[in-house]
Amino acid sequence: MDWLKISVFTQKEAEEIVTALLMEAGAHGVSIEGDNENCAKGGLPWDYLSDEVLKKVPFCVAAFFPCDGNEETVLEDIRRRIGDVRGMDLGLPLGTLEVTTGVVHEQDWENAWKAYFKPVKISDFFVIKPTWEDYEAKKDEIVIEIDPGMAFGTGNHETTRMCVHLLEEYMEPGMTVIDAGCGSGILSVAAAKLDAKKIYALDLDPVAVQVTGQNAALNGCGDVIDVHKSDLLAQVPQEEKADIVVANIIADVVISLNSVAKQYMKVGGMYICSGIIDTRLEDVRKSIEAEGYKVIQIIQDGEWRAIACKYRG
């Protein structure tokens, strides 16, 4: 399959916002290309940096969409979304927000991950290690082997790190966990390595379902991770009641999930949701509280927020 690559030139500070914009537009994956750490060398304010300087140290977020005949529609949608971002007072350097396009073959896209994906410690205990890299675990470290393939998720994004941190805090051995929007399966594998009894890993993207299954097997967790293509939690058995539901998605989908998740949770169970940009935190919090959850903890990493709450029944 050929893939439409849409690159948005921006600044490091706006990486999360641009990434969220592209994922909401339907991207099947993103990669970060370039570096701009030297842009503010000497303490120059961002507002004084010219476009010429920015172009010498390009930094962009590249997203990938299937070439299925809808390329022009996708491009128009992204340009509209970028126009909306330009009009917001975000207090962040956005860069040029120039958009470029290209077409890549699937194999080329898969290989692009390897240039940027290195072993990284993402929480108190967990280290994400790509399959093609060597890494010797230190004391108390738990290593997750991962090959994201065409699925979104290398574990190094702020939203994933926060979810793993909250799983470490609230998981107990023998729990049942639902991972809504499993991506490449990192949260499901983390739950398994924290001794979950059963994990339901769900995603609407069939590629994510395939990759999660492969990564579960790679980490020796295939026997406890049940992977399904699913719209929200539709493929979870109706009688199943989870101890934890974790959802690393986007704010609008979290809001849609709030009323559904409690149908599959034990009273007193924990609901962990992330992928929430700071400007949407109050919208998500109000929706959560309206559905009968009690917010226990809110954590932040950059512009992103994650919420841990308890279902009161």
Rank of each mutant, 00 (worst) to 15 (best):
M1N: 12
K12D: 06
K12C: 00
E13Q: 15
I17D: 06
V18W: 14
V18K: 11
A20Q: 14
L21F: 08
M23K: 07
A25E: 11
G26T: 12
G29W: 08
I32Y: 13
E33H: 13
D35F: 13
E37K: 14
G42K: 14
G43Y: 09
G43K: 13
L44C: 12
L44R: 15
D47H: 15
L49W: 12
V53Q: 15
C60I: 02
C60P: 00
V61C: 06
A63L: 08
F64G: 07
D68F: 11
V74K: 14
E76K: 15
I78S: 04
G83F: 05
D84C: 08
R86F: 00
L90E: 04
L90Y: 08
L92F: 11
L92N: 03
P93K: 11
P93L: 07
P93Q: 07
T96Q: 07
T96L: 07
L97Y: 07
V99A: 03
T101G: 06
V103Y: 11
H105D: 15
Q107T: 09
Q107G: 06
E110N: 08
E110C: 05
N111P: 02
A112R: 15
A115V: 06
A115S: 11
Y116K: 14
F117H: 09
K121E: 10
I122G: 03
I122H: 09
F126G: 00
V127G: 07
K129E: 04
T131S: 06
T131R: 03
E133C: 05
E133S: 04
K139M: 09
K139L: 07
D140Y: 13
I146H: 04
D147V: 07
M150G: 09
M150S: 08
F152P: 08
E158T: 02
T160P: 06
R161M: 13
V164T: 04
M171R: 11
E172L: 14
V177F: 03
I178D: 01
D179M: 05
A180C: 13
C182A: 09
I186A: 02
I186G: 03
L187Q: 10
L187C: 03
L187D: 04
S188K: 06
V189K: 06
A192Y: 03
K193Y: 02
D195Y: 10
K197R: 15
K197C: 01
K198V: 01
Y200T: 01
A201V: 00
L202K: 01
D205P: 07
D205M: 04
P206I: 01
P206A: 03
V207K: 14
V209S: 05
Q210M: 12
Q210R: 15
T212F: 04
A217E: 15
G220R: 13
G220F: 12
H228M: 10
K229W: 07
Q238Y: 14
K241T: 01
D243E: 11
V246M: 09
V246Q: 01
I249C: 02
I249N: 02
A251I: 01
V254S: 02
I255M: 14
N258M: 05
V260A: 11
Q263V: 00
Y264P: 04
C273L: 10
C273D: 00
C273Y: 01
S274A: 05
S274E: 00
G275D: 00
I276Q: 03
I277R: 02
D278A: 06
T279N: 05
R280Q: 08
R285E: 03
R285G: 01
G292S: 06
Q297A: 02
I299T: 11
I299D: 09
Q300E: 15
Q300R: 15
E303G: 04
A306V: 07
K310M: 12
Y311S: 00
R312L: 15
